[in-house]
Structure formats: C-alpha cells, structure tokens
C-alpha cells in the first residue's frame, strides 16, 4: 500500500499535473488549443519544486510534441522525481528519485476561427493514457485513460484559455479515485504593444487558476501568477502556484509550487 508521502507524488505531481501546453503563447500550468504545424516538433523541459509539510520534491517533466497534422498533435510527457522526506519520529531524512507515470496524449482541433492577423479562437479535444512507469514508489501501477478539452481565445494583447480534463483511475481504492482537472488562464502581452517585423519577441504576464477535484472528495485550487518570454524559436517562463483552497484527506497538501519551463520549437 502506498504511504501518504508516495501518494503525494503519484497523485499530486504525476504527469496528470503537467499540461499539454507547449506552444509559444500558452499558459504555464494550463493547456492551450494551439498546435505545431504538420511535422513540427516542440520540446518542453520543466523544473518544478514543491514543499508539502515534511516533503520536498523536484519534479522534472519533459514533454515532446509532434504535429502529425496541423489539427492533430501527439504528446508524450515523462516526469522524473527527486524527493526528500523528513521522518518526524526519528528526524531522519530520506532521499530517493525515480520516474513517475508517463502521459501520452493526442490533441485534435475541432474548431478554428482565425478572425484577424494575430487573432484566433480554437477548440481542441484531448485524449490519451497515463502509463505506469513501473518504478516502485513513483508509479500508480495502472493505465489510466484521460479525456478532456481546451479552448483558447487570443485577440490583440489578450489571450484566454480554459480546459477540463478527466482521468479515470483504474487501480481502485478510495485514495485512487477518478480525477477532474480544471484550469483557466489569462495572458496579457506586456510588450511589445504592437508587433513589427523587427519585434519578434514578446513578454506575457500570466495569471492562472489551476484546480483538481478528486471523486473521493479531495479538492485543491491554486492561483498561479507567472511571466513568459516568447521568441520565435523558444519560450522561457516562470510561475509560482499558491493554494487558495485545499480540502485534502487522501494526499498531502502542497504549501507552494515553483515552476520554471523552457520550450523550443523545430
């Protein structure tokens, strides 16, 4: 049986907690309906650090996207976990590392309305599988289907994203209930106020709400301000996630999450 510490890793910071958001103008912790072109590749490397009471952990998810068609993208996320826990009874500190469950997703665009040179609204469906890594202590040891959708609206300096994802936990047990992840995000282009042919970089302020409701009653909601610097080829971004609601009986409550991310487009 998994300890509460292990559950914090498996349920809280596994691949489901990462996102399919790997385009350029995209929120940091939420999904986006934008996609690479046919044959396009995007690699995203994240570094996330969180503390949850006696637990400290670095999670390092790597996401690779491939544009199978302009409206169909394949995504694979592999999260490495480095964790440290202080055992309260003995004062001993335990450290270990491993590979959490992998996520394979497909993103299929079902609606596109490009209504201006830099303006678009799109809706995409997401479907895939969380795949057991087999790494004892880091895996849910199951294959869990994921379904959902994401909507993006970008107009002028503003962008809005909203997503809803559902993960069916197939392993059973009260602590391993189905999960619903929901996010809303707002991006504001701080600079430049207007693109020109010589200004092909942009700085975005990002504000997100990232929630997860488990069918066993656990509910967690973070507010996540962030900053994103976008060039033609790469994006660098940082965020801090702060809890505004935590009703958790089956996994540890994270005090905060700090995230850094780098995306490169080919």
């Amino acid at each position: 049986m998994l300890s509460r510490f292990q559950l914090a890793i498996v349920l809280g910071v596994g691949a489901f907690a990462t996102t399919a958001s790997s385009h350029a103008q995209a929120p940091i912790n939420s999904n986006v309906a934008l996609q690479p072109s046919t044959g396009g590749v995007i690699i995203r490397q994240q570094l996330r650090y969180f503390e949850a009471g006696e637990v400290k952990a670095f999670v390092v998810p790597t996401t690779i996207l491939y544009g199978l068609r302009d409206d169909l993208t394949l995504l694979l996320t592999t999260p490495l976990v480095f964790r440290e826990v202080k055992v309260p009874t003995t004062g001993e500190t335990r450290r270990d590392s491993g590979v959490a469950d992998l996520t394979f997703l497909t993103k299929f665009r079902v609606f596109r309305d490009d209504f201006g040179p830099t303006d678009t609204r799109r809706l995409s469906l997401l479907g895939g599988l969380e795949i057991r890594s087999g790494d004892s202590g880091f895996t849910s040891d199951s294959y869990d289907p994921i379904f959902g959708g994401v909507f993006t609206h970008a107009e002028g300096r503003h962008a809005f994203d909203a997503d809803l994802l559902w993960k069916f936990n197939t392993a059973g047990g009260a602590a391993r209930a189905d999960q619903m992840k929901y996010d809303v995000a707002y991006l504001y282009r701080l600079a430049p106020d207007q693109y020109t042919s010589s200004k092909l970089t942009a700085l975005f302020g990002v504000l997100e709400l990232n929630g997860q409701y488990d069918m066993n009653g656990d509910h967690e909601l973070f507010v996540s301000p962030g900053i994103s610097y976008v060039t033609k080829r790469w994006t660098l971004e940082g965020t801090i996630q702060l809890p505004i609601l935590q009703e958790l009986d089956h996994r540890l409550a994270r005090d905060f999450v700090v995230g850094l991310s780098f995306r490169i487009r080919f």
Partner: peptide, 17 residues
Amino acid sequence: WVKGLACPGCIVNVERQ
C-alpha cells in the same frame, strides 16, 4: 495574407511549410 498568427512562435509553423 494569413490570419491567426497569435504569437512569434507561430511563425515557425509557417516557415517549416
């Protein structure tokens, strides 16, 4: 004349093709 280029990264999509 192209519509929907939401950000600098979108140019990579056009360039590739």
